[in-house]
């Protein structure tokens, strides 16, 4: 299987879908500047630079999507989505419903976030849960090159608005990506590692910390299952509940802050529907309720790391503190 970076997986997905469907186009600040190969292959009409104005970039995507095109817009850093909230939340998410189904909005919004570049809180803010809370949207946040490619292709083909969040730390990570057509359906979690004693549920970069934690735990005789949610909306509730029932213990891990985050939804889901199977309370390991700091050690401290995941899992299974 070819090994490519996440950034290359994203580029492949976009090029393949533009080749397949002439209604796919891409625009945003610097899109034509940075993606010259797309301009060369598909022309300036389908690959466009825009003014640095997120509201009109997103609104133009919404209008175009309702009019027969399939726009992909790059809004760069997730905090910039604040300038595009009306267009994404009030228009893309609601106008299908409010019109009684007269319009559909096949569009993808790309945005980066997360620790790793020390860019500070106005470029690094994991806001994905805001959009999970808004009706009519879908939300995706992958962790591997294969999923970046497969989920982005599926998002472009989806007839609904998809927020596609890219963890800043993952862009240059490499991974195996199946050759040829590779699609990953939205709304389906992946079980990266099977286990009996505890379930580690995560998405984006902290999935990798969960996998590392699971390896450490295995050395200590604790069998951890790792679930990568991949899609946050639709959420693969069946996969979460099945694993919770299997292991009886759940740790939810994400970089976004705890209050009303995706972890709260996972915990509530398990409490409502698998309470009888639980042998310990659900634990959440998340970023704190602070803006993301820039300084490297502070930024790393913001993110739940593998050792904290190991400690939480050990606590749930009742193991003594590891000496």
């Amino acid at each position: 299987m070819p090994v490519i970076t996440v950034n290359d997986a994203i580029s492949q997905a976009i090029a393949e879908e533009m080749r397949r469907d002439p209604s796919v186009l891409m625009f945003g600040e610097g899109v034509a500047t940075k993606r010259r190969e797309l301009v060369a292959e598909f022309g300036a009409a389908r690959v466009r630079n825009t003014p640095l104005a997120e509201g009109i970039i997103a609104g133009t995507a919404v209008g175009a999507a309702a009019s027969g095109l399939r726009p992909i817009v790059d809004l760069l850093f997730a905090p910039f989505l604040c300038f595009a909230m009306d267009e994404i939340v009030n228009s893309a998410g609601k106008l299908r419903y409010m019109s009684g189904g007269q319009f559909k909005f096949p569009m993808v919004v790309l945005a980066m976030s997360g620790a790793g570049w020390t860019v500070g809180a106005q470029h690094n803010h994991n806001v994905e849960a805001w959009f999970v809370h808004s009706p009519g949207l879908k939300v995706v946040m992958p962790s591997s090159a294969a999923d970046f490619k497969g989920l982005l292709k599926a998002a472009i083909r989806d007839d609904n608005p998809v927020l596609f969040f890219m963890d800043l730390a993952l862009g240059y990570q490499s991974g195996e990506v199946p050759a040829g057509e590779h699609l990953v359906p939205l709304g389906r979690a992946a079980t990266l590692r099977e286990g009996r004693d505890v379930t580690l549920v995560s998405y984006a970069k902290t999935v990798h910390y969960c996998v590392a934690a699971a390896e450490t735990l295995a050395g200590q005789g604790i069998s951890a299952e790792v679930i990568d949610l991949r899609s946050l909306k639709p959420l693969d509730e069946a996969a979460i509940l099945a694993s919770a029932r299997r292991t009886g213990r759940v740790v939810v891990v994400h970089e976004a802050s705890r209050l009303c985050g995706v972890g709260a939804e996972v915990a509530a889901l398990v409490a409502e529907h698998a309470f009888d199977a639980l042998q310990a309370p659900v634990r959440r390991l998340t970023g704190p309720d602070t803006p993301a700091p820039s300084s490297w050690p502070l930024e790393q401290a913001f993110v739940p790391q593998a050792d904290a995941i190991v400690a939480a899992a050990r606590e749930l299974v009742g193991a003594r503190a590891y000496a």
């Binding site: 509201g55 009109i56 997103a58 609104g59 133009t60 995507a61 919404v62 209008g63 175009a64 999507a65 309702a66 009019s67 095109l69 726009p71 009306d86 267009e87 009030n90 228009s91 106008l95 019109s99 319009f103």
Partner: peptide, 18 residues
């Protein structure tokens, strides 16, 4: 795409025209 958010229609019109 009628919008009651004041200015909403202005954000959507360029895409329809595009």
């Amino acid at each position: 795409l009628t919008s009651t958010i004041v200015g909403g229609e202005l954000s959507l019109a360029p895409g329809v025209a595009l």
